[in-house]
Design a protein around this nucleic acid. Sequence first.
DNA 1: CTGAAAGCGCTAACAC
DNA 2: GTGTTAGCGCTTTCAG
Lengths: 342, 342
Amino acid sequence: MTTLTEVARHAGVTPATVSNVLRNRGKVGAATRERVLASVEALGYRPNLTARALAEGRGPTLALMVSSIANPFYPEFALEAERAARKRGHFLLVCNTDDDSNVGSAYLDRIAGTLSQGVLVMNADLHFDDLIKTQRRGASVVLCMWERPDDPPGLSCIAVDFRQAGRLAARHLLELGHRRIGAIVGSAPNGVQAIRYVGLVDALAQVDASLPAKLEQETRFVEDDVEGGYAAAMDLLDASPDLTAIFVSNDFPALGVLHAAADRGLRVPEDLSVIGITDIHWARLSRPALTTVAVPTAQAAEMAVELVLELIHDTPKEPTTWIAGEPQLVVRKSTGPAPSRG
Amino acid sequence: MTTLTEVARHAGVTPATVSNVLRNRGKVGAATRERVLASVEALGYRPNLTARALAEGRGPTLALMVSSIANPFYPEFALEAERAARKRGHFLLVCNTDDDSNVGSAYLDRIAGTLSQGVLVMNADLHFDDLIKTQRRGASVVLCMWERPDDPPGLSCIAVDFRQAGRLAARHLLELGHRRIGAIVGSAPNGVQAIRYVGLVDALAQVDASLPAKLEQETRFVEDDVEGGYAAAMDLLDASPDLTAIFVSNDFPALGVLHAAADRGLRVPEDLSVIGITDIHWARLSRPALTTVAVPTAQAAEMAVELVLELIHDTPKEPTTWIAGEPQLVVRKSTGPAPSRG
DNA sequence: CTGAAAGCGCTAACAC
DNA sequence: GTGTTAGCGCTTTCAG
């Protein structure tokens, strides 16, 4: 491996000058500059990023903490995050916590502050304490998809207004004439996705103050996956066969609801409308294609990278919250007018 | 940040001793050992991985090159690769090439040999030359899913017998009585997935020597995604409405075929059987659930990590090929007996 | 068994 | 403008 020093020797200058040429730092004479560049070329020199990181006190990698990169929403985010990082000369380390906070903890313990100066947090199964501790070690951390812009956490974050997403989904259903609406939420009643449900309640109350109370019987809090949505829909449809629409707080369980409807012989959207939130790639590929509320994933990823880099540059005393763009309704084929009941 | 030296001072020993304790190197007296550990604990010391990497001459990160981590097969592989790496004290850098060989090239140029001593290659849009060059720079590279165990490339790789996968898929169709079989291949005729098609031809020829010739008219080479499969199926079904089964070289396009069948009013599997290869997570979630030939993804990922680590340890003159386990038929709901035509 | 010393490859003051 | 000099934090001979 060729080193900076070798290039310097080859060009007849000192390492410092080569470094200056490469970083466009300091002022270097055009002549020496050319000479150095020629040597770099001739020797096929490439800077050693590890050495540079050590000297600069911070490396070029960002850590992305997810519960499992195979969880289908994360790759879409990771792709954008990696691109954003790359555009800024950084690299992305993918850290699966395997839904185990100990693994997450250990990860932070090992890499934060040395290998990665910046940590992007996507999943919830990390203890807040660990993140705070991580910050004290000198790393910057940003929560990538905080669901409540109005209620910032104690950490820097990119916030997306999921309450509004819930409202948009609900209004769409309401405008189609649905009043018998069930809800499936992909988290615990006090979990992350609960705020989307609050959005639903908002919209319902606006139309008819009595609706939210009824809704409670027709809500299920479940695992945030296809199977969870399937089971909840079956259950809901058993309990309330007259539902004409199901609001689902996330696209995966919504896909499960589509399956449940099919297995029950219910036509979507003629007999039952289904709406999700997020607009994952697969939403457009389901049968029928899923109507959903798109969330600005790519933008959030880019903002997260930008914010964490800024925080690394200089860490403010107070956590920073950046708010990503508004959710957008995406009408596809899984929602339609409420059937008129004989 | 606490450093090794600080720990040493605190414990009243030299940095070397602390290092020895931490790495379980050399022999350290039980007493000093205790003292050092106590100091590590007291100061909350964590080794600086960057410094260690520089001193050791190789870092703890492995690079995973993919065209796009959002391409749904990769995350499943990446998850396993990350786990395997983590188990061995390493970290995984995800590098998207964005289907652009220049991006891939630049990636290798920047990180290989310094940030990452090991490179796992999943995608094909990297020039072989670049990989060879990468090796000369001191990095180890392994191709993660080479499709032809019998025909090793010029690089170390994990091979999976995709020809056999093709055979298994074909035999399943044949055993169900299908003779009018169409094929959809998710790559160019001379592309990566072509060998799966060869497996199909093998099996067909074994049953009836005249079958392969007919098959040629009923084969489409397309983009390796849902849309590609959809369009090809539509085309195929137009050209040969009497097909009773479609062999698809990959699960994504197979999912598209399912959609095409639905849009044509064809019942699967009553009217048309569909089989894929790979067994991605979504295969079990389609309607009907996709019959497919499972490929040992997790095993290949683990082997790839192990091999690359071994190659880093000491690089043999000749490339190494490790062969992963056999593909396995997974029968679900998209295949059934060939309909008897009136 | 423990200490001293050199060095990994690069950057960043500060001189010249 | 360019060279000199110290490190960054750790590992690793080699002495003692």
